[in-house]
Design a protein around this nucleic acid. Structure first.
Length: 136
DNA sequence: GCCGGAAGCT
DNA sequence: AGCTTCCGGC
């Protein structure tokens, strides 16, 4: 996940497509991190895999839109991030405000071998997002 | 802010 | 299972 890495179009599938499921928070975080336009909101900073949430309210708002949870806030989002500690997906950078670090050794190398990145994206990155209650 | 238990939802 | 909601404690 070097800077400027962009996921190709075929990696995105609509929610209604077979085999699709709800997007996971860490997928969403990675999605924001690879988009230049969100660098004022969330960005890689410091050590490899380390990122800073520069605008917690905005990240929470965007996550709320994605999950159709209009009352999402940073308090709730950060609780979800804390559940990643035991799963060894993330850990906190202690002393640094709004700063977390991906355990890429597990997330990428073990669960999703870097050599098979294309299939990892296909299997995990779901971008299509229409709220169920919004369907007419 | 950050932590983690507890309960609830899908 | 993967959050969401709520919250007491630090």
């Amino acid at each position: 996940f070097k800077k400027g890495f962009a996921f190709p179009d075929w990696a995105y599938k609509p929610e209604s497509s077979p085999g699709s499921r709800q997007i996971q928070l860490w997928h969403f975080i990675l999605e924001l991190l690879q988009k230049e336009e969100y660098q004022g909101v969330i960005a890689w900073q410091g050590d490899y895999g380390e990122f800073v949430i520069k605008d917690p309210d905005e990240v929470a708002r965007l996550w709320g839109i994605r999950k159709c949870k209009p009352h999402m806030n940073y308090d709730k989002l950060s609780r979800a991030l804390r559940y990643y500690y035991n799963k060894r997906i993330l850990h906190k950078t202690k002393g640094k405000r709004f700063t977390y670090k991906f355990n890429f050794s597990k997330v990428v190398l073990v669960n999703y071998p870097i050599l098979d990145m294309a299939n990892w994206i296909k299997a995990n990155l779901i971008i299509g997002h229409k709220c169920q209650h919004d369907r007419i």
